[in-house]
C-alpha cells in the first residue's frame, strides 16, 4: 500500500499516529510523515486515514 500525505491539508492532529503509531509520525513542523509504510496492519492504517480530520491521507493499493 502506498501512503500519500497532503502537507497543505494536514493540520497536525496526530490522529493517524494514534491509530497507526508505527506507520505515521509528526515532523518538526507538526505535519504527518510516513515512518514505515508497513509499520501497522492495513486495518490500522485504514483507520488512521479515515480518522484524519482533513482527509489529508490518501491510500493507494500497490497493484490497484
Amino acid at each position: 500500500m502506498k501512503i500519500h500525505i497532503d502537507r497543505e491539508l494536514c493540520m497536525g492532529s496526530g490522529s493517524c499516529q494514534f491509530f497507526a503509531p508505527h506507520t505515521f509520525d509528526l515532523d518538526a513542523e507538526c505535519k504527518a510523515v510516513v515512518s514505515n509504510p508497513e509499520g501497522d496492519p492495513s486495518t490500522a492504517i485504514q483507520s488512521a486515514a479515515s480518522s484524519c480530520p482533513t482527509r489529508a491521507i490518501e491510500l493507494v493499493e500497490a497493484d490497484g
Partner: peptide, 23 residues
C-alpha cells in the same frame, strides 16, 4: 472490539485538540 474511530472527539477540523491529553 476491533479498534476503529468513534465520534466522541468530534470529526473534521474541530476534532478535539485535547484527545491525546484526555487519553
Amino acid at each position: 472490539r476491533p479498534l476503529q474511530p468513534h465520534a466522541s472527539f468530534g470529526s473534521g477540523p474541530h476534532l478535539c485538540i485535547g484527545m491525546h491529553l484526555a487519553r
